[in-house]
């Protein structure tokens, strides 16, 4: 049933675009990191779906595994980087405006 998986893949892409709105709007750098992390998790699943659609799951599953590892490391690195960035914290870069919906 490839049509079903194509539908799911397109749906995941739409959700990723919606998540990209959050990553774009912020308002703080940490919100952007969350958005990127969620997009990365969806990409991991999307790669396996693409593999099923093209009939090459054995190849795409390795790419997906590598992507999951990379996404985890990137998120940890970004979080640690902003945690120890004392200058940004003291000048209140993160607190410039509150998001009140």
């Amino acid at each position: 049933m490839p049509d079903f998986f194509v539908t799911m893949g397109v749906g995941l892409c739409i959700l990723m675009f919606l998540t990209l709105v959050r990553a774009f709007r912020g308002p703080t750098a940490i919100d952007r990191i969350i958005g990127v992390n969620v997009i990365g998790t969806k990409t991991t699943v999307l790669l396996v779906i693409i593999g099923i659609v093209y009939g090459r799951v054995d190849m795409f599953v390795d790419i997906s595994l590598a992507y999951a590892l990379l996404n985890f490391i990137a998120t940890l690195a970004a979080a640690r980087y902003f945690q120890h960035h004392k200058e940004l914290r003291e000048t209140g870069f993160f607190l410039r405006k509150r998001d009140r919906r």
Binding site: T28, I30, I33, I34, N37, T41, T44, V48, V61, S64, L65, A68, L69, F72, T75, L76, A79, R80, F82, Q83, H85, L88, R89, F94, L95
Partner: peptide, 28 residues
Amino acid sequence: IVLILIFLFLANPTATHAIIDAGYETGV
């Protein structure tokens, strides 16, 4: 695929904790 699943199950809460700790530290 199940290996990816187990990895995500372990890694996602860890990443969540890292992000929220960083946010708490920066004083949000």
